[in-house]
Computed example of a mutant assay.
Amino acid sequence: MANISPIDLQKALRGADYPASRDDLVTLARNNGADDVLVDVLVDAPAGEFDGPDDVQKAVFGDE
């Protein structure tokens, strides 16, 4: 797992409108100035829609 924190993820997804697709979240993270590592983690997340921040956290961090 890349060295990103839940706080970094929240900052990258600031302003997200849920439900949101993975591609929408990747675009938002880039627009919010997220670093390449965080964007790559989102790109590698399962495709589909996320109902909220908790869904994104589970996809990125699993059961950590």
Rank of each mutant, 00 (worst) to 15 (best):
I4A: 00
I4N: 09
S5N: 07
S5I: 02
P6L: 14
I7T: 15
I7A: 14
I7F: 15
D8M: 10
L9F: 05
L9V: 10
Q10D: 11
Q10R: 03
Q10V: 01
Q10Y: 02
Q10T: 00
A12P: 07
A12I: 04
A12V: 06
L13R: 10
L13P: 09
G15A: 00
G15P: 07
G15R: 08
G15S: 08
A16Y: 05
D17V: 13
D17E: 13
D17M: 15
Y18E: 08
Y18S: 06
Y18W: 12
P19W: 00
P19T: 13
P19D: 12
A20C: 05
A20H: 09
S21Y: 06
S21M: 10
R22M: 11
R22I: 12
D23P: 10
D23N: 15
D23W: 04
D23L: 13
D24P: 02
D24V: 08
D24Q: 14
L25G: 05
L25K: 02
V26Y: 05
V26D: 05
T27Y: 06
L28E: 03
A29C: 03
A29W: 04
R30L: 02
R30H: 03
N31K: 12
N31H: 06
N32S: 01
N32D: 08
G33K: 00
G33D: 00
G33F: 03
A34I: 03
D35K: 03
D35S: 01
L38H: 01
L38F: 00
V39Q: 04
V39D: 09
D40F: 13
D40I: 07
L42D: 01
V43K: 14
V43Q: 13
D44P: 06
A45E: 08
A45T: 05
A45C: 10
P46Q: 12
A47T: 15
G48V: 10
E49Y: 06
E49L: 15
E49H: 09
F50L: 01
F50R: 06
D51Q: 08
D51E: 13
D54R: 11
D54A: 13
D54S: 13
D55F: 01
D55H: 12
V56W: 06
V56L: 09
Q57T: 12
Q57Y: 10
K58N: 13
A59E: 09
A59R: 09
V60N: 02
V60F: 07
V60P: 08
F61C: 08
E64K: 12
